[in-house]
Amino acid sequence: MTVQLPMPRVGPITGDAPRPIKVVLNWGRRYSLWVFNFGLACCAIEFIAASMARHDFIRLGVIPFAPSPRQADLMVVSGTVTDKMAPVIRRLYDQMPEPKYVISFGACANSGGPYWDSYCVTKGADQLFPVDVYVPGCPPRPEALLQGIVHLQEKIASESLSNKAIRAKYAGSRHAAAGEVTRALVSKPQSPDVDVPGRDTAGVPS
């Protein structure tokens, strides 16, 4: 089924505005980040702590009440991304409106973390979509998320939305489906002695 899609564009005022207007628009954008929390594991607890009264990221303009991806500007992937969950995350990222930002929160979302050699763990959320800010830690403290948010806000303040950039971002991928990040079931190893490429077996008693 082919859907006719219009070319991606930024609004006429956003694209052709003089620099001071762009600064004002970016200023509005960076301090009203409706956040869509993708809490997948224990890092989500730290995210929730960051949203509560003690750390309180609402004072930075991050609003944790987006009821749907279509009303969110920022997605925080906090926790272990599994291959089974990957298409779901990708689909919800696809449904967020432009401009959208992603913070990868914690070692698992950054790289797979302590589960990097599991058969079912995705090696980082950036395998699925572009990530703007990585927050390291296992789990990171809420202050680390605040630092990541400030970092993202600096990035938003210095960006300039243009038709050219948004078309480059979507070039060739406007019909992409989340099914692309699904994979078939992993087959069972033939025998325990099978040599797994890339795994260092030196020093392992056989």
Binding site: R9, D94, Q95
Partner: peptide, 22 residues
Amino acid sequence: GRLFAPKAPTTAKLKTYECGVD
């Protein structure tokens, strides 16, 4: 909204449901 908002519709974005599952 027309003047300011970027628009980049994709096939996935035009899906009706928002649960992440097909």
